[in-house]
Simulated scan of single mutants.
Amino acid sequence: MQQRGLSALVVILGVIAQGSCGPVQASECPEKIGEQAYAHTEQCDQFFLCTNGTLTLETCENGLLYDGKGAAHNHCNYNWAVDCKGRQWDPTPISTPGCEYQFGIYPVSKECSTTYIKCAYGEPIEQECDAGLAYDDRTHGCNWPDQLLHVCNPEAVVGFKCPTKVDSSSPAARFWPFPRFPVQGDCHRLITCVEGYPRLITCGENKVFDESTLTCEDPDYVSTKCNSIGK
């Protein structure tokens, strides 16, 4: 183990042990059972790992950093999600075709897309957003297309155009200004309009959409074809 890492570990384990069993040796872990990870005091791309009492100094893969919160891979999180709080790291990417860093999440293109690229060990794998969502490069995740109007057409993504008004006697009117509508041939989703743009909503687990109430219900309480589909 490097001397700098060893010195940092003395500080970390000493702080952890205060008020319990007193100071511990640098070669000891505070807990002897299970797996625990501790931040390096100087390096943001390194951390200390205790596995059943065995201590090791670990380095995050290229594109990942340690903050104790994320677990994109081996206790490390994507670099854009980590606040290093003054700890240092080498931002040099190790690039491969389709991947800036060995680990990362990237857009397929600058256009509206319902897929994105997830890189692991430098291998780009295209991932699908959930139905009705599009990739948002600002958050490195999927979002409602009406939150991406600078690149997306929500009507094209969802496949539905929200009406400017609804019949006051229709079930949809109950939810105005966020009217709801069924999805043709889909018993597990509905469409709700927000500021005139459609959003595809998925019912919870073991729930189906009731066209008469425009709500997600237990299949036993739905008197349509979705009753049998949900079971």
Rank of each mutant, 00 (worst) to 15 (best):
H140L: 06
Q3S: 09
G132E: 10
R87S: 08
C50R: 15
T96R: 11
C112I: 15
S7V: 11
D136K: 08
L148K: 03
H40G: 01
Q127G: 00
I12T: 15
V82E: 06
N79K: 11
P145R: 03
N143F: 01
T202K: 10
I33L: 12
T41C: 07
N52K: 13
D90K: 13
S228F: 15
G34W: 01
E217N: 09
Q3A: 11
S223A: 09
E217Y: 06
Q46P: 06
G22V: 14
I33A: 15
S170N: 08
T139R: 05
K207N: 03
N79I: 11
E28V: 01
E126I: 02
S228P: 05
T59Q: 09
I12C: 12
L200R: 13
S168P: 10
V10S: 06
D136A: 06
Q147R: 13
P23Y: 03
T59P: 03
C21R: 10
V157A: 13
Y197K: 02
P107Y: 15
G34H: 05
D130I: 01
C60A: 09
C193T: 03
L55E: 00
D83S: 05
Y135G: 07
G19M: 08
R199M: 08
G196K: 07
S212Y: 14
P145H: 08
P182H: 05
L49T: 06
Y116I: 02
G68I: 00
A172M: 08
G159A: 10
E42H: 12
C216G: 02
W89R: 00
C187E: 03
V183C: 01
Y135P: 12
T41M: 07
D67L: 09
S223V: 00
A156I: 13
T202P: 13
T92Q: 02
P145C: 00
A156H: 14
I16N: 15
F47V: 03
E61M: 11
V222S: 10
E195K: 08
A37S: 12
P154K: 07
T114D: 15
A37C: 11
G86P: 09
Y66N: 05
F48N: 05
P219F: 07
Q88G: 03
C21I: 01
K161M: 04
K118Q: 14
P177R: 00
P107S: 04
E35T: 07
V158M: 11
G132W: 13
S109G: 10
T115A: 02
S7Y: 12
T213K: 00
G141N: 09
D90H: 10
A173D: 03
L64S: 01
A134K: 07
P198V: 00
V158H: 13
Q3Y: 12
K231A: 00
E61G: 14
T215I: 02
I125P: 11
G86Q: 06
F181E: 08
C187R: 02
A120N: 11
Y221G: 04
E205I: 07
G63D: 14
A8I: 05
V82M: 11
G122W: 14
P198Y: 03
S20C: 01
V222E: 09
C29S: 04
V24S: 12
V158N: 12
G19P: 09
Q3D: 10
R138P: 14
